[in-house]
Amino acid sequence: MFYSATYSSPLGKITLASQNYQLVALWIEGQQHFGSIVADKVIVKQNLPVFNLTKRWLDHYFAGKKMTIEQLPLGPKGTPFREKVWELLCKIPYGQVVTYGDIAKQIALQYNLPKMSSQAVGGAVGHNPISIIIPCHRVIGANGNLTGYAGGIDKKIKLLQIEGIDTSNLVIPKKGTAL
């Protein structure tokens, strides 16, 4: 059984979804790839403990407080590869960015591979089911390109700014699917 709730944020309406007392999805209204994560049968329950905890976490985060994800019961579901990438996303420190290539190198090391595709990593990052909390917005392209945020580049920039990251030297792509 899946449950859902909504949260009003500075980025717009956010939908939360849970299953078995864990947060399994969080998406910003209009975000790509989401909504299909949860089954057809979703019960709206605004005040479940997991939702209350997540909403407080988001309140603090949007107020500019440094939050850690260990405070939340997360249960993202995906392929083993995607889950490994999401695990690495969780290790990106608050207020810092890494590149898709950095994550690809980490994956290659962990799987004892000569190399890993940055594009494959980008696909896994783009399908992160718990955006903001699992910080996919902290991943940028080579040379400071602000690519690949399913919620839109404008929201990615706002999230980075909330965390105190200077975005003035980052490059907004002229074209792409994440705009």
Rank of each mutant, 00 (worst) to 15 (best):
T167H: 01
N145V: 13
T147V: 13
I14E: 06
Q31V: 08
S36F: 09
S8F: 02
A17M: 08
R138H: 09
V171L: 11
A63Q: 14
H33Y: 15
W86C: 07
K91S: 12
E70A: 12
G78V: 08
V121W: 01
S18E: 10
P129N: 06
I103N: 03
A39V: 11
S118H: 05
H60K: 15
L109M: 03
L72P: 09
V44Q: 13
K55E: 07
R82T: 07
P135W: 02
V171R: 12
I69C: 03
V24I: 15
Q19N: 12
Y94C: 05
G12K: 08
M67W: 01
K65A: 10
Q161H: 00
P80M: 01
E83L: 13
K41C: 07
L16D: 10
G35E: 14
G176Q: 07
T99H: 04
A25Q: 15
T79C: 03
F81K: 04
K105R: 12
L109F: 02
G176W: 09
Q71P: 00
Q96G: 01
C90A: 14
L179F: 06
V38L: 12
R82H: 13
A63L: 09
P73K: 11
H60N: 15
K77C: 04
A108G: 05
Y21M: 07
G141T: 03
L58V: 01
T15Y: 02
I43S: 13
Q22H: 14
T177H: 09
N145H: 13
K175E: 13
D59W: 00
P114Q: 04
I165Y: 08
L109K: 14
Q110I: 04
W86S: 02
N128I: 05
N47R: 12
Y111P: 00
F81D: 05
I130G: 09
D166E: 10
L160G: 08
F81T: 05
A5P: 08
I69M: 10
V44N: 13
